[in-house]
Design a protein around this nucleic acid. Structure first.
Length: 453
DNA sequence: AGGGATGTCCAACTACAGGA
DNA sequence: TCCTGTAGTTGGACATCCCT
């Protein structure tokens, strides 16, 4: 069977590692057991026309949660409830209209809220709700081997590993119809090369009945030429074949099973690329939308700072701050939370900028003053670094950052002789004291000089 | 020996739980 | 509702293994 998954340039480790497809998913986490239970429950849609309850999965645990409530109290509490618990009692047609307007992730979340909703949403008569939501989300048509709820859960049902429940698995393996974490891929995927070793005595033709992926557990997303099968799929298929051997007409039953499974596998494998491309485009769109929201947030934050008197040059200091880079739209409440933290940084940037400006103005004024003197007088003058230590200069530099300082004020520092003269006198006294306290120069002999040289 | 598959390391990124 | 810390994934680069 030709492999539609393989690119034409097979034989080379593809540089194009399969891209991560980040789709909108239900934010709440879902433990492994839930995934399994849900998977099995979703595998067959309920034929019930009403929203009958499913049997509790863990009777023991559920029993503890049951609280006996008198009928009277129940009525009172129901009236007081302001949650969604009464929603299933809304006329069916109305409810379907409402549900059909929800996002897929919301419908999944709703189906997980209660047995009533689960029963209702997994019943066949709710299919239109799922279809409408999937279409509104721009999804491709539901694959024949999946029900709409299964398809929805695969795309939007959370980023948990289908095997262990590990969160954050962004990549959907459309061949395996699962999300799998790296650890589970290492354990659960069977390379066709190792099939003989791991399943000794099994017919290799068995693999033609099972969908597969080209991304193994150790490939870090690299697509290889080999086929990787999900171990449980192999075991399940083996078990089915064994069961068929006990059928009335084993040969016919087995042949029919082979044909149906081959067709199903072919249908899956031949459409993988299509679904992957869709997922990539969706992920790209999500990134673009996220960037757009982040840009808007940045603009909003800048505007808020401008409104309270800061300039863009200072505001730019916070552009890379995590609170700014977020793509969450800026609300008044959000602004209230982040303002103090960000304003500290903007203020710090403003102080640095003002200090630089004043230092430059000081330097300019000093240079102009020095040019009024003879170069021989410069040696006695303080350097810029020393100048900044003078009390008069510090007073000027540390004036309130919102206060303007005229250029003349710096010039006046030097035009007033007392400022610099005080420093020069102090310097002179210091040098005289150093000379007075130092040892007289030793008298070197010729040998000493030779040694020094 | 060559080339593909597998494995390691690490920085960057992301989702999410828990706290405020 | 938002922020923060953390755990885990992703993906690039490179090393090593293994098959032909």
């Amino acid at each position: 069977m030709p492999d539609p998954q393989q690119s034409s340039s097979s034989g080379v480790r593809r540089s194009t590692r399969t891209r991560t497809t980040r789709l909108a998913t239900v934010p709440q986490s879902k433990p492994e057991e839930m995934a399994d239970v849900e998977s099995s429950e979703l595998s067959e849609l309920s034929d019930e026309e009403s929203s009958d309850f499913d049997e509790p999965t863990h009777r023991g645990k559920r029993a503890k949660l049951e609280v006996k409530v008198s009928p009277k109290k129940r009525v009172v509490s129901a009236r007081r409830k302001k949650n969604l618990s009464l929603l299933p009692t809304v006329p069916f047609d109305v409810l379907m209209e409402v549900l059909a307007r929800l996002r897929v992730a919301d419908i999944i979340a709703l189906s997980r809220t209660s047995k009533e909703f689960r029963g209702l949403l997994l019943s066949k008569r709710s299919i239109s709700v799922w279809k409408a939501a999937l279409t509104a989300e721009g999804c491709l048509e539901c694959p024949a081997d999946l029900s709409e709820p299964e398809y929805a859960v695969l795309l939007f049902g959370g980023t948990n590993c289908y095997n262990c429940g590990t969160k954050g698995i962004q990549r959907i393996d459309f061949g395996l119809r699962r999300r799998l974490c790296v650890s589970c891929m290492k354990v659960k995927l069977v390379s066709e090369k190792r099939f003989d070793t791991l399943f000794p005595g099994s017919d290799p033709m068995l693999l033609e009945l099972i969908p597969y992926t080209h991304i193994g557990g150790y490939s870090h997303g690299h697509s290889s030429n080999g086929r990787f099968f999900y171990r449980d799929d192999i075991v399940k298929t083996q078990d089915t074949l064994k069961a068929l051997e006990r059928a009335e007409d084993p040969k016919t039953a087995t042949n029919e099973f082979y044909k149906a499974q081959r067709d199903r596998t072919w249908a899956i494998i031949s459409t993988i690329r299509k679904y992957e491309t869709w997922a990539e485009h969706t992920a790209d769109r999500k990134v673009v939308e996220s960037k757009s929201r982040a840009a808007q947030r940045w603009e909003d934050i800048q505007q808020r700072f401008r409104n309270i008197g800061y300039i863009d040059e200072d505001i730019a200091a916070i552009k890379s701050h995590p609170n700014v880079k977020s793509d969450t739209p800026l609300t008044n409440q959000g602004w209230g939370r982040v303002r103090a933290r960000l304003e500290d940084l903007v203020l710090e940037a403003k102080k640095v900028r003002i200090d630089k400006c004043r230092s430059a103005a000081l330097s300019d004024a000093y240079t102009k003053y020095m040019r009024t003197l003879r170069p021989t007088q410069w040696a006695a003058l303080p350097r810029i670094r020393e100048l900044r230590t003078l009390a008069e200069v510090q007073t000027l530099l540390q004036r309130d950052i919102d206060a303007d300082i005229a250029t003349d004020e710096f010039s006046d520092l030097f035009n007033d002789d007392s400022t610099l003269q005080t420093w020069i006198d102090g310097r002179q006294r210091y040098l005289e004291s150093v000379i007075a306290s130092s040892e007289p120069f030793p008298k070197f002999t010729g040998d000493d000089l030779m040694w020094i040289l």
